[in-house]
Amino acid sequence: MEFKKYGDSALLINFEQVITRGINAEVLALSAAIQAAKWEGVRFVIPAYCSLTVGYDNGSIGYADLCEKIMLIEQELTVEKLSINTRKLSIPVCYEPPYSIDHDELVEVLGMPFDEIIHIHTSTVFHMYMMGFLPGFAYMGKWPEGFSVPRKSIPRANVPALSVGLAGQQTGIYPVESPGGWQIIGQTPIPVFIPHNNEPFLFMPGDEVRFYSISSNLFQQIKEGITEGCFNYEEIYG
């Protein structure tokens, strides 16, 4: 771990700069431990793939003291604490038109039939590494080595809400309509950002996520079920 000053009221902890579940688990565990400690002066944390940003009120706590406190709790982190989150989510995705907006471009850049791309997407167990870009946008990885998806050369002005995108070795779901450069493989009917819920975000860092393919008929049914409030959210856990 390397501590860096990040302006006068934040610090950055860089772990080994690689995207692996092991390193990310250390980031998430340290982030959770800092939040649980509720130290006076700590204002926010931003866990990322292999770094942790900690924002603090420099009138309440100094950089050196905060670093020392963090190093102390880091030493107490055990293997059990590294895997606090054991949630498993199954997310339905419709890979049919009109939702698979980048069908043709994906077939071209990956050089394989779309069915095979869907197969990789539905058979990979993804790990939710971090949130960023938009409220509730979850960065999930990783695709098998050798299947890196280039971003669109010109970002799309309007990516529909709940579009499922691919970029590099990552997959993610746009929580709201937004501009974006990820290649769109399909769409989920499950809202990932529900502003007025007690817990507004579907995903949590550390989640294990699998995708499964649904028809456009089932997509509509689930969507209507959600609108009418009779969709059983338990279906996506486990």
Partner: peptide, 29 residues
Amino acid sequence: ISSGIVPGTVQVTPSGQVIVLLADAQTTG
């Protein structure tokens, strides 16, 4: 590799453009 952003961060794009980030900036970059 994407990492946390705090207000007041000055970042430089690959083409050399300088961007000063404010309170509504994305939380990672």
